[in-house]
Write a protein that binds this DNA or RNA. Structure first.
Lengths: 102, 102
DNA sequence: TACATATATGAACATATGCTCATATGTTAA
DNA sequence: TTAACATATGAGCATATGTTCATATATGTA
């Protein structure tokens, strides 16, 4: 029972951390980011691999774009997405390896 | 455009990862876990530090308990909570240090 | 026993989230 | 220009989430 000089998080920092975790708090976004961690992918490719509708995938990509976690380049009418935040990918990989190590 | 032997996540793994990230996807839970990462705390202490109602804190502790991220011990009528998942604390600290390093 | 203190819990409510469906936009080819 | 393809987007809906309010439960004390 000693007095410890404990600190606590300010609201801004907690909000910012929550924002990052929220980005990863959905299985669809996790699957998309995992795919992109391995290779640049077109929307249609993601759609096929995840076996989801084009609309659902596009909405999630929109979410990830707003969060600056992915970027894309255009080639004709095809958009190729890739990840844009190395740190978030690292965090994702750590959690995934933790799960597989159980 | 080489053929890469890419793998993708199965639903179970993605769900499990999302479950962990969801646990951290809220500023209140982040502040609680950060507090507990430094010291064992009573519910009333957490309530005071976070300046929240006792009920709100207790509900979030309940959530964290269900996720096995915290545990508690009783001393009289006081419950002392502490973290119960080292790995999740590590992930949290990594994200926090990332935010502060910007 | 009665009361105060510490904590938990259920109901209700407002807001956020993820999907579907329909449709819009942008690009290529005929 | 028209049609076909690739992708984005808005509306609507069902479900999940975080809080408040009221109240229950457990412990300590007079």
């Amino acid at each position: 029972m000693e007095r410890t000089d404990h600190s606590f998080l300010n609201q801004t920092t907690a909000d910012e951390a929550a924002r990052i975790f929220k980005a990863l708090a959905d299985p669809t976004r996790i699957k998309i980011l995992y795919l992109l961690s391995q290779e640049e992918c077109s929307v249609s490719h993601i759609t096929e691999v995840l076996e989801m509708t084009q609309s659902a995938v596009s909405h999630q990509l929109s979410t990830l774009r707003k969060l600056r976690l992915v970027k894309y380049r255009r080639e004709g009418s095809t958009l190729y997405y890739s990840y844009d935040d190395e740190h978030v990918i690292t965090i994702l990989q750590q959690v995934l390896s933790h799960i597989n190590c159980n």
